[in-house]
């Protein structure tokens, strides 16, 4: 189990990770979700003892990473697939890693086989595509046959084939009963891979729950209503104390399900042309939760509005 308590990292004036506490359960795939710049990579580097926390601590099965003996046997990680010397062959890269944790050379060939790099094992890693580098990184993570695995944005920049491969691989690792902690900024990707979610924004914890719970909780369900007697219906709904908003010719109602709205309409003799429950997408849910914590907002929208206003006022 990975457990973070009050984990904090400050770079000068920026607080990259802010009093973050969470735990990653054993034997499950836990997604680490947050927009770019939310502090996911920094947190992962602190888990691995690469960056020193400004405050708080993070432990793996109760021990700090730097206290682990032959750590590759306990924790495997792929934070950046490009952390390989470009002139060194894939096999040589894995050989020194294996040696450092007293793993036999035969293990190198096993993991190369596992990720399908046997045929290019003696080629220099600098010539690898991103997908191949990613596989080499996963091979390195698996060298010590660890129970805990960390992956930072493993599908980033991969082609669809690569993404499917990684996804299947994660499932396989989880099926083998390993603890997998994987970060992503794509909720849709996490919904396919992770059972548990830890969501952060601007270095702060937003939610820790199962993926299902998160989606249900975050996607606010609304109902779309269209009716020729819209003003009547609107008054009735307002009277019932639900939130409504206009959308084209209809209304979007939140806080009341479609059955209740239908009955309300019947009571007031309003004909309904449409009564459809709307389910927010995962991405919307994610945006809703993390929207306020995205670090780099664009001011494109504001600019566009300002420009439009100017055009109107000058009468063009």
């Amino acid at each position: 189990m990975i457990e973070a308590v009050g984990l904090t990292k400050r770079y000068g004036k920026t607080l990259a990770v802010d009093d973050l506490s969470f735990n990653v359960q054993s034997g499950r795939v836990t997604g680490f979700l947050g927009p770019n710049g939310a502090g996911k990579s920094t947190t992962m580097r602190m888990v691995l003892g690469l960056d020193n926390p400004t405050g708080g601590s993070v432990t793996i099965d109760g021990r700090r990473y730097r206290e682990l003996h032959d750590p590759l046997r306990t924790v495997g990680a792929l934070l950046d697939a490009k952390w390989v010397h470009p002139n060194r062959s894939a096999r040589a890269h894995l050989r020194w890693l294996a040696k450092s944790n007293k793993l036999p050379d035969s293990r190198v060939d096993e993991v190369l086989e596992l990720v399908g790099l046997t045929s290019v094992a003696n080629k220099r890693a600098g010539g690898f595509s991103l997908g191949m580098s990613q596989r080499l990184g996963i091979a390195a993570a698996l060298l010590g046959d660890p129970q805990v695995l960390l992956f930072d944005e493993p599908v980033n920049g991969l082609d669809p084939e690569g993404i499917v491969w990684i996804r299947k691989f994660m499932h396989r690792l989880a099926d083998e009963g390993r603890t997998v902690f994987v970060s992503s900024h794509l909720l849709s990707e996490m919904a396919l891979t992770a059972q548990e979610l830890i969501v952060i924004g601007r270095g702060k914890l937003i939610a820790q729950c199962s993926t299902e719970e998160f989606v249900a909780q975050a996607t606010e369900s609304t109902v779309k209503v269209r009716s020729p007697q819209l003003p009547v219906l609107r008054n009735a709904l307002l009277h019932a104390g639900v939130r409504i908003s206009d959308e084209g010719e209809g209304l979007v109602v939140s806080g009341m399900d479609s059955a209740e709205i239908g009955e309300l309409a019947a009571q007031h003799g309003a004909t309904l042309h449409e009564l459809s429950p709307q389910r927010g997408s995962l991405e919307e849910a994610f945006m809703q939760l993390t929207g306020e914590s995205v670090e780099y907002h664009t001011d494109l929208e504001q600019t566009a509005v300002a420009e439009a206003a100017e055009l109107i006022s000058t009468g063009k």
Partner: peptide, 18 residues
């Protein structure tokens, strides 16, 4: 310095935290 340049220093410290 090439270890810092290519990030292999992180792989090194990950494998050998001491």
């Amino acid at each position: 310095t090439t270890e810092y340049r290519f990030g292999t220093i992180r792989a090194t410290f990950q494998a050998v935290p001491n």
